Amino acid sequence: MTEPRDDARPQPRFGQYATPEEQRARMGLPSAPETRAPVPAAPVPPPSADAAPRLSGGRLIDRAATVAMLVYGIFSVIQSIPLVLDTTRLLETMGLDVELADPAGMRIWGVAAVIVLTLGWMATALLSWRVARRGRLTFWVPIAGAVVFNLLASIVVVIPLVSDPAVGDAVLRMQESFGS
């Protein structure tokens, strides 16, 4: 069979020290044929344009929907910039006619919201690209990105806004008028 080992290692029980020849013998397989020098591979011609992978109908629709949502998203981000930076216009949009206690402080929160929206769109576009490169469905990425980053930007703006005493009073008056 095999010659005894002359080193101090214990005898293998599960083949962890066995050579490939010993493994083949224990499995009852014939010995491996002699290995020859590798034959150089034939040169591979560069792939033609016809050999490029093509998107199937479903994947093409998925990619088109993803791109369309990303384009819509960037236009939404651009259109929201003036709204969140101009607190008077933002309050009018909300139906509140109040004077803020600290309009300059609120502008800082508007800038923060713009940063959140911009970085969120960039992260969503990058993730969409990475998911598409893996060949997976991507339509969900812009939807999830829009939900997450719009929610974060809204929180960044609304919490400091409603903590302003004038806005809080106006919201309470509005609530009372709906209740009556």
Results as ranks from 00 to 15, higher is better:
29 L>A: 10
15 G>I: 08
80 S>R: 09
111 V>H: 02
41 A>Q: 07
142 P>L: 01
116 V>T: 06
160 P>T: 02
27 M>E: 15
45 P>T: 09
138 T>I: 07
170 A>W: 12
10 P>Y: 02
18 A>G: 09
18 A>Q: 03
132 A>M: 10
64 A>H: 10
165 P>D: 13
166 A>L: 07
59 R>V: 04
82 P>S: 08
130 R>W: 08
133 R>K: 13
75 F>V: 11
81 I>E: 00
48 S>T: 15
51 A>L: 01
7 D>I: 08
1 M>Q: 08
86 D>I: 03
4 P>V: 14
80 S>K: 05
138 T>E: 06
60 L>F: 12
1 M>G: 15
135 G>H: 02
89 R>F: 09
80 S>T: 14
116 V>L: 07
9 R>K: 11
113 A>I: 09
13 R>T: 12
39 V>D: 03
43 P>V: 09
159 I>C: 01
98 V>P: 04
107 R>Q: 13
138 T>L: 06
175 Q>W: 09
127 L>R: 08
161 L>P: 02
29 L>C: 07
139 F>D: 00
78 I>D: 08
18 A>C: 02
103 P>E: 01
103 P>M: 01
87 T>I: 13
175 Q>H: 10
5 R>M: 01
100 L>C: 02
57 G>D: 12
36 R>K: 11
61 I>L: 15
95 G>D: 04
163 S>D: 14
162 V>Y: 10
100 L>N: 02
151 L>P: 01
172 L>S: 13
134 R>K: 12
126 L>Y: 12
31 S>A: 15
148 V>Y: 00
179 G>I: 03
125 A>S: 09
39 V>M: 03
